[in-house]
């Protein structure tokens, strides 16, 4: 299988703007490879560097050293983002637009033809179950609906790679289940999904492989079944790998 997402010795540093400048290493020598058709879970505690890695992959942050490639193209080139879809964590879309207008806007950026746009919008609104609210302004949407329209915008260009940053965070169980079902459907369609998440149960259910990072360093990478085989479950594996010591409850 071809590698469609790759990072090589990625190092990212953030320097504070205070008088006494301090430098924080957000990522240190990160090597990742994701193959086509995989559902890849990217795990780590808060502040581990998951979002920073995604930000580098999307060209939002320039690494101090190392390189990142999408489909073999350096991520600093906008064309590398032609075949990807991205759903950020907790995003509010243009609230004065309706779902249909929002999708049409993103379709225009990708240069889709009018007929293709109409077809994609119809299909996506059905997929995310927002057909009934397609003409309503986004400001009237619930959080779950906003997340689903976010997922629809990420899929407008029928991407080969989908990058999701905590797609189910803040959603109720029904909303979470709906998003999970959509990811499962995308997996069945042969899409590659790279997603950062804290929902370990969800990751265990749908991911083929996972990587766990902590303090900007890659701690482990491998098949979910291999990691779980050495531990009672993925949660225990995650806690042990990230160095968390379980305290006995008095």
């Amino acid at each position: 299988m071809s590698v469609i997402l790759k990072t090589e010795k990625l190092r990212v540093e953030f320097t504070s703007r205070e008088f006494r400048q301090t430098t924080k290493v957000a990522l240190s020598s990160l090597d990742l490879e994701v193959s086509a058709g995989e559902i890849f879970g990217f795990l780590g505690p808060n502040g581990a560097g998951k979002t920073t890695t995604i930000n580098v992959l999307l060209g939002f942050v320039t690494p101090k050293s190392g390189a990142a490639y999408l489909f073999g193209i350096d991520v600093r080139q906008p064309i590398a983002r032609q075949r990807i879809g991205y759903l950020p964590e907790m995003t509010y879309y243009y609230k004065f637009l309706s779902a249909e207008e929002l999708l049409r806007f993103y379709a225009k950026i990708f240069g889709l033809s009018r007929s293709e746009t109409d077809k994609r919008i119809g299909k996506l609104l059905k997929l995310v179950e927002l057909e009934h609210a397609s003409k309503r302004q986004i400001k009237t949407y619930s959080k779950g609906m906003q997340q689903r329209i976010g997922l629809a915008q990420a899929l407008i260009n029928n991407p080969d790679l989908l990058i999701l940053d905590e797609p189910t965070s803040g959603l109720d169980p029904v909303g979470r289940m709906k998003v999970r079902e959509i990811i499962q459907r995308l997996k069945n369609e042969g899409k590659t999904v790279f997603f950062a998440s804290h929902e370990l149960g969800e990751v265990e259910t749908i991911c083929d492989r996972v990587a766990i990072i902590a303090d900007g360093e890659l701690k482990t990478i491998g098949r979910v079944s291999d990691i779980v085989a050495q531990h009672p479950n993925l949660e225990k594996a995650f806690l042990e790998i990230t160095g968390y010591q379980l305290q006995p409850v008095a």
């Binding site: 590398a80 983002r81 509010y92 879309y93 993103y106 950026i109």
Partner: peptide, 14 residues
């Protein structure tokens, strides 16, 4: 502020 810049810049545009 509304983080709409992120999905926008994740598209193939400069």
């Amino acid at each position: 502020e509304q983080r709409t810049l992120l999905p926008l810049l994740a598209k193939p545009l400069t």
